[in-house]
Simulated scan of single mutants.
Amino acid sequence: MSSWKRDIASGLVVLLPLGILLFVLNYLYERVIALPLISSLDFIGLGVPESLVPLARIIVALVLIITLILAVGYLMRTTAGRLFESALDGAINRMPGLRVVYNATKLAVETALSGTDDLQEPVRLETWPGVRMTAFKTGKKTQDGRVVLFLPTAPNITTGYVIEVEADRIEETNEKVEEALTRVLSAGFAESAHQIPVEEENPARTSATTVTTDTAGDGATTDTEVK
């Protein structure tokens, strides 16, 4: 890859995620301050300076949202809350189009909030002769002593396979969970050498050229190899 293409790619890697993040934050800001309950409040009449009205709207909206989340979270710990969640899941799962979006979103949120604490250690597993795949120990074992692993798909780690393998088939990687997840989430394209311990497939090659010279001027020649 030429240098200008590499520079463009590196610039996009930095600026594109930042631009998307700013776009999402701006969209959320506009939606939050436009909520009926927030937009109808007379902050100026309450003594809030006009320059601080947008900030006051955000603070009030965040307080209401956090209060709602805590209230629903507390409700989910009760029997009534679990029954409500079960009834809601059942109702939405009967809707062909919405159930896909609902279940995917719910699974993504559960995976994001649970973090990587449940993934004990990344390992490599030879699934086919000569083919290795990244998996994670779950800290569980079967009754016959097999190790239970989670084998995620790339780049979507919310799906995958729960497999049971013999301990001697597992290869330790000495990687951190975050390093292995970065490789899976990037579909193998992550280029940070200190995070992803892989080597380039096509290293730079050097060519050797033999040059014949007459150094003494007497017709005798000397072969010199130039790299």
Rank of each mutant, 00 (worst) to 15 (best):
G45Y: 14
P96F: 03
E50K: 14
I33L: 10
M76P: 00
I44H: 11
G97I: 07
L25N: 03
L46D: 05
M76K: 00
E85T: 08
L35G: 11
G47T: 04
E126F: 12
M95Y: 03
L52P: 02
V123S: 01
E121C: 04
I69N: 04
R94H: 12
A34Y: 13
V100N: 08
V100T: 10
R77Q: 07
V32D: 07
S39A: 15
M133G: 01
N93D: 11
L37A: 14
K106M: 06
D118Q: 08
R31T: 14
L107K: 12
S86D: 08
V101Q: 04
A80T: 14
L83R: 12
D117I: 10
I92S: 07
Y74A: 12
I33W: 12
L52E: 10
G97A: 05
G81Y: 03
A34V: 12
A91F: 12
Y102W: 15
M95F: 09
Q120P: 02
G47E: 05
Y74C: 04
I59Q: 04
L37G: 15
R82E: 11
L37F: 15
L64I: 12
L46P: 01
R77G: 10
A104Q: 08
L68N: 03
R82A: 09
V24F: 15
E110G: 09
M133Y: 08
